[in-house]
C-alpha cells in the first residue's frame, strides 16, 4: 500500500489517473469470488444425519437450531398421534413430533428416542425425535435421487432426496409448512 501511494504521489496527474485505473482493474480481478471445485455436482447439501428405528434420515443443517438430548417429554392431550408431546428448552415450550407417525409409516418395533433435533422455518419451530444423531455430512445434490415412494413409503413432497446410501433427506420447510402439521382444533358444540 505504501508503495502504491508513493507511485501516485510522485507521478504527474495524468499518470496518477492511469495508475488509479490499473489499480482499480486489479482490485476488480482480485475481488472476483473464487471458483469452486464442485461445479460438476452443483449444490452441496450440508445435512445432519440421524437414526430412527434402524433407518437413516437427515435434515439440512440450515434448518436445525439445535440438537438436544431428550430428558423429559410431556404428552399433550387432544393432539394428533404424530405429536408425541412437548419439551421445555430454556423456558420455551416446543412440540415434538415423530416423523414416522407423521408419514404414516408402519411401526416396526419400538425405537430408542434419545435425541431431539429442533428444526425451524421463519414461522415455526418444532422438535423431531431421533434415536441418535450420527453426524454431519456433505451430500452433493447430484447424488440424491428424487425419492421413490415405493422405496421409502414417504410422499415425494416431504423429501429432498434419497442418497445412494439410502439416507433419506427430509425437506424441512415442506413438512413444517404442511397444513397437516398445524394443529388447530376447536371443541365443537
Amino acid at each position: 500500500m505504501t508503495e502504491q501511494t508513493t507511485i501516485l504521489a510522485s507521478a504527474n496527474p495524468s499518470e496518477a489517473d492511469s495508475a488509479k485505473e490499473i489499480l482499480k482493474t486489479r482490485a476488480r480481478i482480485l475481488a472476483r469470488p473464487a471458483k469452486r471445485d464442485d461445479d460438476g455436482q452443483g449444490e452441496i447439501l450440508n445435512v445432519i444425519e440421524f437414526r430412527l428405528a434402524q433407518e437413516r434420515y437427515a435434515v439440512e443443517q440450515k434448518y436445525v437450531r439445535e440438537v438436544h438430548p431428550l430428558r423429559e417429554l410431556t404428552p399433550v392431550p387432544c393432539t394428533p398421534g404424530f405429536v408425541l408431546g412437548m419439551i421445555n428448552v430454556r423456558g420455551q415450550i416446543l412440540p415434538v413430533i415423530d416423523v414416522k407417525k407423521f408419514f404414516d409409516l408402519p411401526e416396526t418395533g419400538i425405537t430408542d428416542l434419545h435425541m431431539v433435533i429442533i428444526v425451524h422455518t421463519e414461522e415455526m419451530e418444532l422438535g423431531i425425535l431421533a434415536d441418535a444423531v450420527t453426524g454431519v455430512r456433505l451430500v452433493p445434490q447430484a447424488l440424491c435421487q428424487p425419492s421413490l415412494p415405493t422405496l421409502t413409503g414417504i410422499r415425494a413432497r416431504y423429501l429432498k432426496g434419497v442418497t445412494d446410501q439410502h439416507m433419506v433427506i427430509l425437506d424441512v420447510p415442506s413438512i413444517l409448512n404442511d397444513p397437516k402439521t398445524i394443529v388447530n382444533e376447536e371443541v365443537e358444540e
Binding site: 399433550v76 392431550p77 387432544c78 394443529v183
Partner: peptide, 13 residues
C-alpha cells in the same frame, strides 16, 4: 405457538 395453533382443551403449558 404454531404448529400448535389451537389444541382442544389445552390452553398452553
Amino acid at each position: 405457538r404454531k404448529p400448535l395453533a389451537r389444541v382442544r382443551n389445552v390452553s398452553g403449558a
